[in-house]
Amino acid sequence: MQARFVIYALLAIAAILLPLVAPPVMNNLILRVGSLMILAISWNLAANAGLISLGHSAFWGLGSYAALLVANRLGWPFFASLIPAMLIGAISAAAIAVITGRLRGIFFAIAMLALSEGLRVIAVMTPEFTGGGAGVFIDQALRPSTQTVAMVTAACAVGCAIIAYWISLTPFHYACRAMRNNENAAEMLGINPLRFRIAVLSLSGAMASLAGGVNIWYSGFLDPAIGFDLHVTILAQIAPILGGIHTLAGPIIGAFATIGLSEVTRVMVGEQGFSLLVYGVILVFSILCMPKGIYGTWLTWSQRKRQTTPTAPSATKAATP
């Protein structure tokens, strides 16, 4: 147990310090993997409580716009701009939690999709405020180095993973699981579903907005189609599903796998239209053949192996959060 923690801690520190020595392409990948990891953890957190979001791009976009606007209008630097980004994510998510009340399953999913599309329309239609369809560059003078942004992304990803881990240790996590399985039963157990909903969604929203906020400092340009891009929503759910939904490690593995896949198809398949096609085909087959994701499949496989050779009893416990 102790040794494992030390290894994790070292790994996390290594990930955060990696941008200092890594080549720029590596920084780019750290950034993409890191921000997707935050997004995936955020999505998985909501999914753990039975809230399947089809509109995580709403939080991502709000975070991006918040960071960009405070930078361009008020001259806030990188670090300071992440605070309003997170706040707006948390506040809007809390509002959504209250508004959607007891909507569940598919209805909550569609409500989120509507929110994201609605926000995109608002961003398009208020060009004086957001820059509108023409888009805006973030103030070049305020931009930190790529290394800084990559380091912060890695640190945020590690932070989110720690939060997710910490939640898995608290009773909060059982409440979530109870809500996922049956909200009525959870209520009978003395859990106030609305309060938990607000807490879970706010946390999830803040994380996704943080990812959006960090990312805008790296990519430097924002328009409504980029901010509220459906692609972000898709990535936010593909990563945990591919890695292993409702697990701690799933979103993390999923983020690596998704970006790796995207990179391989992008670089290797140069013909027109093929890269997204291959991406889709792999998505379809991984869901059909590995519905528990990479991590879940690996667990099943290793458990089966363990049953035939009964050793190492301690490792299974951590797999269930």
């Binding site: 999914a47 399947i52 089809l54 399953g105 598919i106 999913a109 898709i234 759910q237 593909i238 599903i241 939904i245 013909e271 027109q272 239209g273 093929f274 997204l276 096609l277 991406y279 889709g280 085909v281 998505l283 379809v284 869901i287 059909l288 519905p291």
Partner: peptide, 24 residues
């Protein structure tokens, strides 16, 4: 019989494939 999210993602993936087949 799989969870909703798997269904959604599967159909989404199929949609992505069909779109790009058409584009090609």
């Amino acid at each position: 019989d799989a969870p909703h999210i798997n269904q959604i993602l599967l159909l989404f993936g199929i949609g992505l494939v069909l779109q790009n087949v058409a584009a090609i």
